[in-house]
Design a protein around this nucleic acid. Structure first.
Lengths: 250, 250
DNA sequence: CGGGAAATTGATATGATTCAATTCTCGTGG
DNA sequence: CCACGAGAATTGAATCATATCAATTTCCCG
């Protein structure tokens, strides 16, 4: 097999199994062809590789295709805050649309790949395809709602509740991707989980141990199993130790 | 003067002194006329009146015209989290674009007025006017960046730093509106400031007292004066290090 | 005026952090 | 292939920042 054969692997939204979760959601076949003219593949990212950094001009938006990407900002006195962990089908770079330059940085947590949508071309296609504009608005609205909820979690919840919420959210997203909701790998370190949730690494570790002792979860290094979903989701709502009634815990 | 005379006061972006901060930013005169066909006035809101509530269908986006509006969400166990305080020229309702229904509630902190942009009409105009779509994207990107910074503030900063950041941010926004940056009225209660920043009312009160003793500020009930801006801004190193318009905090 | 919510201030409690000491893992090179 | 070293994670003890509890005081608003 020769190098030119790689052309066969040209990224295409029409053939992508993530299309229904991702940018092309809601597009007709013809419209998707238009989007396909714009989308580019990106070389695979290795753990630690940056997709973009804070301050870079906004050349593109990106869709995670495989693996996972973390977004973070830093303050000028050195603090770093992780904004989110992004899984396949999720769009990153939206924050950069304010000033046409990225205000956060994106780094791969593991070997990952992404699709690239050059920004000016993308907005041009949006102008031609109303359904794409609608979807862009939806995605940005989702990002805003997501951060609203995160704000509530960090500002109002105890350490246990934050971690329960984090695990429930991951679990839900894996299910939506067709993976197991009860058993998955955490691609981020305890340090990163703590940073994201406004906790120290020690607190994260202690709470994982506590959850394991209570048999809410089983955790081995990076691999985690949800054993008692009702209890875990009870915690998301703030009920200290009530294992009854559960509901969406995003 | 008769009631019909009120027609004279039909809201119009073309004549609005906030146009450069608000949705019509960057539009030509012709384009602004298109937007004017869509914008509606809303009856004045009194303190405590809701513009919309969580769960309401997204009928419109709103621009604050005068006064101030707070947005908040609540969790299913009753916690409430204030997401932001919105001043004239700022757009609210964007979070509802995910599911076409509001995920947070908007309430007036004082007598306020707003402009209403019926959502379907607005997106239709966006499809006709590329510059308006661009501006919508910018505004949504701004909202996302704003929440990123807030997340950092709440998750990584001490109580003093959070309050200093809050005051600096308000001050900056008042200046951009053409009001005094050094002397203004806090339209929100201590309770609401605390809720917004993830602190209790007692902590907020104590820190205001401390800042006053140190002569960073003078505060009399709702009226506040910035006396020592450098010290205050020294306390809020926590804002994102974007080199562009890095004026004050957040 | 007068009642009640909002704000202030002080004393105490506590959840999470910090400091410290191991233990565990994994990648690397001999 | 194994041993080694360094980072990651765990666990315990002490500390601290902020919350909670409690008591006034202030100041709107009716």
């Amino acid at each position: 097999m020769q190098l030119v054969d790689l052309h066969k692997f040209k990224i295409s939204c029409s053939n992508c199994n993530l299309a229904e979760l991702c940018l092309p959601r809601g597009l007709s076949n013809d419209e998707m062809d238009e989007l396909d003219k714009v989308v580019r593949q990106t070389r695979p990212l290795h753990k630690g590789d940056h997709l973009f950094r804070s301050g870079d001009p906004l050349s593109s938006l990106y869709a995670v295709r495989s693996g996972s990407i973390k977004l973070y900002i830093h303050s000028n006195d050195g603090d770093e805050q992780i904004i989110g962990f992004y899984l396949p089908g999720e769009i990153i770079g939206l924050d950069g649309m304010e000033h046409n330059s990225h205000s956060c940085s994106a780094v791969a947590l593991e070997t990952s790949s992404s699709c690239t949508f050059p920004y000016t071309q993308l907005t041009d296609v949006c102008k031609k395809i109303p359904a794409l504009q609608d979807q862009m608005f939806r995605l940005m609205g989702r990002e805003i709602s997501y951060e609203n909820k995160l704000l509530l979690t960090i500002s109002k919840k105890s350490a246990e509740e934050r971690i329960a919420t984090f695990l429930s959210s991951l679990s839900l997203r894996f299910r939506q991707l067709g993976f197991s909701a009860d058993e998955f790998k955490l691609s981020m370190s305890r340090q990163e989980i703590g940073n994201y949730l406004g906790l120290t690494i020690e607190t994260v570790s202690r709470i994982f141990s506590r959850f394991q002792k209570k048999e809410y979860i089983a955790i081995d290094r990076k691999y985690i199993q949800i054993l008692d979903r009702p209890s875990l989701e009870g915690l998301c709502k703030g009920n200290s130790s009530d294992s009854k009634n559960s509901s969406a815990c995003s």
